[in-house]
Amino acid sequence: QLNAMAHQIQEMFPQVPYHLVLQDLQLTRSVEITTDNILEGRIQVP
Rank of each mutant, 00 (worst) to 15 (best):
Q1K: 12
Q1W: 15
Q1H: 12
Q1E: 14
L2F: 09
L2Y: 08
L2V: 07
L2T: 05
N3M: 15
N3Q: 14
N3G: 11
N3S: 14
A4L: 12
A4G: 08
M5A: 07
M5G: 04
M5Y: 08
M5H: 05
A6M: 06
A6S: 04
A6N: 01
H7S: 11
Q8G: 06
Q8N: 07
Q8E: 10
Q8K: 13
I9V: 09
I9F: 03
I9Y: 00
Q10A: 13
Q10N: 10
Q10K: 11
E11P: 03
E11Y: 09
M12R: 13
M12I: 09
M12V: 07
M12K: 12
F13M: 03
F13N: 03
P14W: 04
P14Y: 02
P14D: 03
Q15M: 11
V16R: 00
V16T: 05
V16E: 03
P17Q: 06
P17Y: 03
P17W: 04
P17G: 04
P17S: 06
P17H: 06
Y18H: 14
H19M: 08
H19N: 10
H19K: 06
H19D: 15
L20Y: 06
L20R: 05
L20V: 10
L20C: 13
V21F: 03
V21H: 02
V21C: 07
V21K: 00
V21M: 04
V21D: 03
L22M: 09
L22Y: 10
L22H: 04
L22D: 04
L22I: 10
L22Q: 04
Q23R: 07
Q23I: 10
D24N: 05
L25F: 02
L25G: 01
L25H: 00
Q26Y: 13
Q26W: 12
Q26V: 11
Q26I: 14
Q26G: 07
Q26R: 10
Q26S: 08
L27G: 06
T28K: 00
T28R: 00
T28A: 02
T28E: 03
R29N: 13
R29T: 06
R29L: 13
S30V: 02
S30C: 07
V31N: 06
V31F: 09
V31R: 07
E32S: 11
E32N: 08
E32A: 13
E32H: 08
E32L: 10
I33V: 12
I33G: 07
I33H: 09
T34K: 01
T34G: 01
T34A: 01
T35Y: 07
T35A: 10
T35R: 14
D36H: 15
D36R: 15
D36W: 13
D36N: 15
N37I: 01
N37G: 04
N37Q: 00
I38K: 00
L39V: 09
L39T: 07
L39H: 06
L39F: 05
E40A: 15
E40W: 09
E40T: 14
E40S: 15
G41L: 05
G41R: 06
G41Q: 06
G41C: 08
R42W: 05
R42G: 03
I43P: 01
I43S: 02
I43L: 14
I43N: 02
Q44E: 09
Q44L: 12
Q44I: 13
V45Y: 13
P46E: 13
P46Y: 07
